[in-house]
Design a protein around this nucleic acid. Structure first.
Lengths: 148, 148
DNA sequence: ATGCCTGCAAAATATTTGCATGTAA
DNA sequence: TTACATGCAAATATTTTGCAGGCAT
């Protein structure tokens, strides 16, 4: 059950043996690669990464991991509720380490995703889901570009 | 200037020589392929299509057009302001013939985009764009799935 | 005639998968 | 030991591009 795991996301903020526990709880073996990636993802504040970017970072850090494993790991983390997928650009998939409800800026010039720093966004006038459907998530993406 | 062209989008609702005029106004030669695609896109009500789907439709209708040309045409139409790109699914790009301000349902089970049928959505508490940036567009995507 | 279009195939990108090898339990 | 993970390369999928020939003006 991902809800239970989600409650332990806070543990991810710190380094160390803690990551091992979280991975276990998610049903994922704490392998060298997964631990290294989790450390990159959760070692600091919240982040938005693409598979390509995370792989480059790991490589720079001297962590040996294949791009395919990065993709697989990101998907596993997402399925476990440890990451959230953000769809802003058709060409690339971004993952957000912040799984709580919030929205995003997408900086068009830089292909970069940033959290919208307030929680004050309210959406009113949302219609009901079409018959027989339920709403799973509401995404607000504010596209911005530099003042040319 | 796309603003000017945009004012003529209404002309696209009807078939006939009108499409020729609109394409001309957009700086696009009214070729057989473009006219056929424009007719599919604007011949009825508003639609959401992917390149693949539009190509299949054209082929079924006996219109000979290559997939590459469909991609190119969709991009040209978008650049001319005749279509709007909707990013909801990382795997596929959708184009919306409705270029006015509105938002979308994304039906996850079917990979389908639907306009949200009201104009009543209001978003409050939107922060300013980051320094030196301006907001180009706000997208609201309501993801729905069937009640399992 | 001239320059923009089209189709085809090939390239470019992003992501997934099959399989042999390696490793956690 | 046994099941699950990893790495590599190849497969897939989507979209773009180069180029030779075609069509609109």
């Amino acid at each position: 059950m991902t809800a239970h795991i989600g409650n332990h996301r806070q543990m991810l903020g710190s380094r160390g043996p803690c990551l091992t526990a979280v991975l276990r709880m998610a049903g994922l073996r704490p392998t060298r690669q997964r631990l290294a990636l989790a450390d990159l993802l959760y070692g600091g504040g919240h982040r938005h990464v693409s598979a390509e970017a995370l792989h480059a970072e790991a490589t720079t850090d001297g962590v040996t991991v294949s791009l395919a494993t990065v993709y697989n790991t990101l998907r596993q983390f997402k399925d476990a509720g440890l990451l959230r997928e953000v769809t802003v650009d058709a060409a690339r998939t971004y993952f957000d380490t912040n799984t709580s409800d919030h929205h995003h800026f997408f900086i068009e010039d830089e292909d970069r995703v940033v959290d919208i720093p307030t929680n004050d966004i309210e959406i009113s006038g949302l219609p009901d889901a079409p018959k027989g459907m339920k709403i799973t998530h509401v995404d607000v993406v504010v596209r911005v570009k530099s003042l040319s």
